[in-house]
């Protein structure tokens, strides 16, 4: 007597596009998942900034006074902090990008977690260094 058995692929849960937010949130996230999520967010932020960057440098075509007036706005503390945060996105995206290259290379995937930790450590150190570099001139101006 033959019993009707369903093929194995009937048990595979396919991606449910209608509930993708809850599906994505319920998925257990490990090192690689977070790296992927942050890489994506920082990438979107950076391309958005690149468009802004072209726009913000457009007064270069209008000569010296127009450009310097515009730059005065960007040299205020608020924009400097925004610039500094932008550097955090640049740092994460470049260090994690380098990590992806190493992970794909030879046996790099064996130590992708260490590489992720190192990218955060190097990133935070460079972020602080850039903060010192950017704001030391402002502090000197403030003291004088």
């Amino acid at each position: 007597m033959e019993t009707e058995t369903k093929p194995a692929y009937h048990n595979i849960r396919t991606f449910d596009q209608k509930n993708w937010i809850s599906q994505n949130l319920s998925y257990k996230k490990d090192t690689g998942s977070w790296a992927w999520i942050f890489h994506r967010i920082s990438g979107i932020a950076l391309i958005a900034y690149l468009f802004l960057h072209v726009y913000s440098l457009s007064p270069l075509a209008q000569g010296e006074t127009a450009f310097n007036n515009k730059m005065q706005v960007y040299m205020t503390p608020f924009f400097m902090v925004v610039e500094w945060i932008l550097f955090a996105f640049v740092l994460f995206h470049s260090l994690n990008g380098l990590r992806i290259v190493i992970v794909d290379w030879a046996d790099g995937s064996n130590y992708h977690k260490q590489l992720y930790r190192w990218s955060w450590i190097i990133g935070i150190l460079l972020f602080i260094a850039m903060g010192v570099l950017m704001f030391s001139f402002e502090l000197k101006k403030f003291i004088q």
Partner: peptide, 12 residues
């Protein structure tokens, strides 16, 4: 751009 504040932010 950042070794000096002027290097990236002045027309000159």
């Amino acid at each position: 751009m950042h070794y000096q504040p002027d290097s990236g932010h002045t027309y000159q």
